[in-house]
Simulated scan of single mutants.
Amino acid sequence: MTHPIRIGVQLQPQHADYAQIRDAVARAEDAGVDVVFNWDHFFPLYGEPDGKHFECWTMLGAWAEATSRVEFGALVTCNSYRNPELLADMARTVDHISGGRLILGVGAGWFERDYDEYGYDFGTPGSRLADLAQALPRIRERWSRLNPAPTREIPILVGGGGERKTLRYTAEHARIWHGFGDVDVFTRKNGILDDHCADVGRAPGEIERSVGVNRRSPGDVADALVTAGATLFTVGVGGPDYDLGLVEEWVAWRDRRA
């Protein structure tokens, strides 16, 4: 399966009023991006640690109504914060509101302050990964039982680069993998994902490969990442200004290739 080149933007829901975030979503859609992401945290990840911040999924429900073309989702939902059946129902509902444009991004979780202040058990990396392994099939099973059913097979995106577990879960359940790191790291982990696909009897081409390109221009890294297998390129943009200049460079690069 050949995946088209796509451009995403992660509008980080920190240090901004919601009106500024809503404006950035509209500008991103107008600029031609393919996917708009937020993230699933309760406090800023950088800058003033107690600065302005908004919750992920209530925001996605608003984005479902505020947009008309782009796909959207969290990069990524923390599996620890919601019961898997509830998350499945939330995703199904937001997908219906949007007319079938939601991506369910999910990961094992890592930001300890979120857990401590909101009363979740932080556990260990191993226990959080075990919880993710249990949650992914439960989400898919719940989708099969909901009425009305999801508009389509909602694409699951798994974020992370753990070579023994996270990439294995990706091969088993996901339609998009989001990786991190430079070209060499991405290339190695992409190959390991291919190996896991072979182990579970899945064609590697079924999984779209996504990579973050924060602060990197297409002229610097795009060709090498395409060669390594990436087709979805996502730029992170912070508030309150949400400067989309680099995003627009990536959109222009995508269009020149097309």
Rank of each mutant, 00 (worst) to 15 (best):
D241S: 07
E65C: 10
I156V: 15
Q20N: 13
I103E: 02
S217A: 14
M59E: 02
W143C: 03
S210M: 05
Q14N: 13
S127P: 10
R140W: 05
A133F: 08
R256M: 14
V106A: 01
E249L: 12
A74P: 13
G73D: 10
F72D: 04
E249P: 03
Y242F: 11
T151K: 07
A62M: 11
R6S: 15
G109A: 13
Q12W: 14
E208I: 04
G245R: 02
A258I: 08
L232D: 08
D121N: 07
Y81R: 02
F122N: 03
K52N: 09
I176D: 02
A149F: 09
A258L: 13
A198C: 07
W39G: 04
Y120Q: 12
L157E: 05
G160E: 00
F186C: 06
R175H: 05
R6G: 05
P148V: 07
P44L: 08
D199L: 10
A64F: 08
A228K: 01
L193S: 06
L132M: 14
W57R: 07
F122H: 05
F37N: 00
Q20S: 15
N79M: 07
V9P: 03
D243I: 06
Y242K: 03
G8F: 06
D220T: 15
R256L: 12
D243N: 15
H173N: 14
E55I: 12
F42K: 01
T124K: 05
K165A: 10
V183S: 06
A228F: 04
V200A: 06
E208R: 13
V25G: 04
T170P: 03
V76Y: 02
V200W: 10
W253L: 06
G201S: 08
R6V: 08
E249V: 07
G239E: 01
V200Q: 05
L86V: 01
D194G: 14
V35Q: 03
